[in-house]
Design a protein around this nucleic acid. Structure first.
Lengths: 234, 234
DNA sequence: CCATTGCAGCTTCCATGGAAGTTGGTAGTC
DNA sequence: GACTACCAACTTCCATGGAAGCTGCAATGG
């Protein structure tokens, strides 16, 4: 029997192929910074840790490369990608464009769906408010994440959801960092309510602008902060 | 010596791996409808046609699946994906959101870059106008494509370019079809000029709205057309 | 005639080994 | 001492074969 996974979850989902398992395990490890950015691994080493051969690891690495999480250096190894401030800026511009579009689409849905979504969005915002008074940073982050995930996953455009998923995978590490970096938790509540209200009442233009402004403010707040701390990559 | 490629380009770029070659060749074949949507191929068959073993074909198929061009059915084969009208709608909403964002970013670039881009955009629009009077459908399509590619590739956000590239790969076939479907070529010229002018003068809000409106009009013109023809998939 | 079962032929999935390429250190030369 | 050439150790890349799974058809039992 081969010794398994010291640092990496085996992630043995049943029904999934070894490639899927390797993909999920590696992605999780990267998201949670088990592998630091800039770390260069070899397929053989990762295969050993996961208890599979090199082939499924290689194929998982191809998928991760497609998503921008790693780079496969020909004949040299697998490099865990680092994010520069420039990348964070690009990612925020993607969030601004796509989430605004998602909010607009959501506001154009038939009324029952709109209202159900607005209710769920408000519940997430409630969670943020509660976490704020409790001073629970982690809970606040989870609730905020839930709000934004709901917005893109329920707008009816699967491609929007997929795009956001990709950039979120890339920026998860940075997000965990900046959450703790800010002097105070931002007062996103009003902007979240404005978005959900506009969706509830079917005001697509307003919904688009509210979502847009929210992300623009977050970008303009965070980018200078990152620059000032002098983070070159993360 | 193995007999090569009847229907599929070998596409032997030097310096590229066999996987890259297979990827490029398959993508080209799908774009140009050498493989009809719904066609189910086996990795072995494709490998034979391309003159390589099954491994690089399989890895190329993984990349194509990531981009939504094919689906790998476990233990059954590789399925060329078809596009439903719903997919075209989703793709247009992605174009609307991203190209508007790209136009806004472009208008925020330093003046020399803005002007250079606006000049290039205008040259593409000139090409469309010329093709229009000449009645050259193909040339018109190429010039229009050039305009939109310039817009996203020169805005400074590589992620925008990548997203657009992905949806364009998916919708290329549909585009070739709808180009010939319309009763007359659309008068996109004024909208293109409005976009490039706004970029030239650094008016980011105006540029965003111009690009947005242009794609919205195209969507609202094309979708009913596709529905009316009763295309179920393409 | 209809339903069920078993099987043959197909497919992908994954492990493995040889080929080819890159790197960093070392010996040799000026 | 500085520079070049080479070599050993490492890596991925790709072909290939066996294992496992899916599908459709034919044979069998009701």
């Amino acid at each position: 029997m081969i010794a398994r996974s010291k640092a990496v979850e085996p992630a043995s989902e049943r029904g999934a192929s070894l490639v899927d398992n390797a993909y999920a395990a590696l992605k999780h490890a990267i998201r949670e910074s088990v592998f630091a950015p800039g770390y260069q691994a070899s397929a053989g080493e990762l295969a050993l840790r996961l208890g599979v051969s090199r082939t499924p690891v290689h194929e998982a690495a191809l998928r991760l490369q497609e998503e921008g999480l790693v780079r496969i250096l020909p004949k040299r190894g697998i490099l865990i990608c680092a994010l520069a401030p420039q990348d964070i800026a690009e990612i925020y511009d993607v969030l601004i464009a796509i989430e605004a579009g998602a909010a607009e689409l959501s506001a154009r849905m038939p009324e029952p769906a709109r209202i159900a979504l607005a209710d769920d969005l408000d519940r997430a915002t409630d969670g943020m408010a509660q976490a704020l008074v409790a001073g629970d940073l982690t809970a606040w982050g989870r609730a905020d994440e839930a709000f934004h995930r709901l917005l893109v996953e329920r707008c009816g455009n699967g491609r929007f959801a997929r795009i956001i998923q990709t950039v979120n995978d890339q920026s998860h590490r940075a997000r965990m960092l900046t959450l703790r970096l800010r002097p105070r938790l931002p007062s996103s509540e009003a902007e979240h309510r404005a978005t959900s209200d506009a969706i509830r009442h079917g005001l697509s233009g307003l919904a688009r602008e509210a979502a847009r402004r929210h992300r623009i403010r977050a970008r303009d707040e965070l980018l200078p902060l990152i620059e000032s701390v002098g983070l070159r990559h993360m």
